[in-house]
Amino acid sequence: MTAPVRTPPTPERQLAHLGVVSGSALGAAWGSRPTGPQLPVVAALEPLLPQGLRRGSTISVEGSVSLLLALLSAASADGAWCVLVDLPPISAEAARDHGVDLARLPLIPATGSNWVAVVGALLDAFDIVVARSPARLTDTELRRLTARTRQRGAVLVPFLTDGTRWPLADLRMSVEPGQWSGIGDGYGRLRRRQVTVTAAGRGQAVRPRSSELWLPNPQGSVDACPAEPVAPVLTIHPRHG
């Protein structure tokens, strides 16, 4: 049996015991964990975003407009103002079916060379700013927008299409190509799609979470998709005598 080695308490450790942290540690803590009240998300997305949409955070969405609309829906219905910048032309009907309030959803389809200025101005006033990330954005611009998001308590949602990245996102949400049901070889129609949505990020969300969702479901919104087969398998016994 060996006696535990006692390390002499360093001044830093004594201070840490008192709750004093260095400035750099404080900065890192701020960087990884934006604080503030949160905006709600729909029930189906709660396993992926247990904290809702935290104000001041950056959440990137990759590849699916439906996922984006599902993400906005509960906050928008709750009174939040959202704005979509440089997005592909979304369908008003799909947005409405997801539960987004169109009266609080202005679209800015083409910003051209003013992307950074426009997104910056919108972050000052809107609760959620969704913007398709341009192919080229300098590190300084990225950091400035992230800092502005945190400072103004907005939620920045960079929408990533093939090739673009947003390295400073607190949470990255992506969709794998899913399976449509209801459609066959010349019959039926598109009813719903089963997809796997993954959320990975920094800080508390380092471990990626995944969820099976119906996105869209037959009503055009989002539902959790049960992991087990929907219909139980019944064994039918032949009747004797």
Partner: peptide, 11 residues
């Protein structure tokens, strides 16, 4: 067409 509606429309 009944829902779901396509999320992106081209006009």
């Amino acid at each position: 067409l009944p829902s779901p509606a396509p999320s992106v429309v081209l006009a």
